[in-house]
Amino acid sequence: MKDVRIIEVKRSVFASNEERADLLRQELKKKGIFLLNLMSSPGSGKTTTLVRTIEALKNTCRIGVMEADIDSDVDARTIAEQGVLSIQLHTGGMCHLDAEMTRQGLQELEKENSGQTGPVDLAILENVGNLVCPAEFDTGACKNTMILSVPEGDDKPLKYPLMFSVCDVVLINKIDVLPYFDFDMERCIQNIHKRNPQAKVIPICARTGEGVDDFAAWLTDEMRAWKEEEKSHA
């Protein structure tokens, strides 16, 4: 009979991803890249919101977008039409991105960007459309944003508490259809703050662009703070 040797590991799978994510954040800080992780359920308007946000910011900073999808490159094409750097990440059936996959995506983005004068200022990761799994895995992003659209209902913060508790900003999209839905904005904000008192809530309409400037202003402030933090450490 074969003798079996046991090696104790006791390493948390989630903690291991968190270590990789922290490492990635440190590297991003040195390079001066601000990485935003954008999450939501499918059909909430992630890509449309991104297009609007790019319109608002593309003259003041250099943007690169990583589109994560199980398949297809529909979103990457839409973003590329905005004249910004864009790559498609295929997750091969997986429901979320982890820090290692995000790092690989950033490397692809850098390759795509080669020949340019420097790295992008803002990298945006459009995560897989899903309110459960992406919230479980730290991607290494500097900040997390999620989009909740009006037709999804104001009870979603109660049903998907983790997603709302990991987000710095919640965008409430499609406010132009509020009159047609039984969506109570105040109750929704209360539900979000019940799970995450620090979350900043910004109502927007990506279709018309309403409210997007507020989000762009928040992003600009956060990007500046991120770069200044590195300078003060250097």
Binding site: K2, D3, V4, R5, I6, I7, E8, V9, K10, R11, S12, V13, F14
Partner: peptide, 12 residues
Amino acid sequence: DECVIQEIEVSE
């Protein structure tokens, strides 16, 4: 809520 790699087995 944990998922921990406790140990690995190796034959001698």
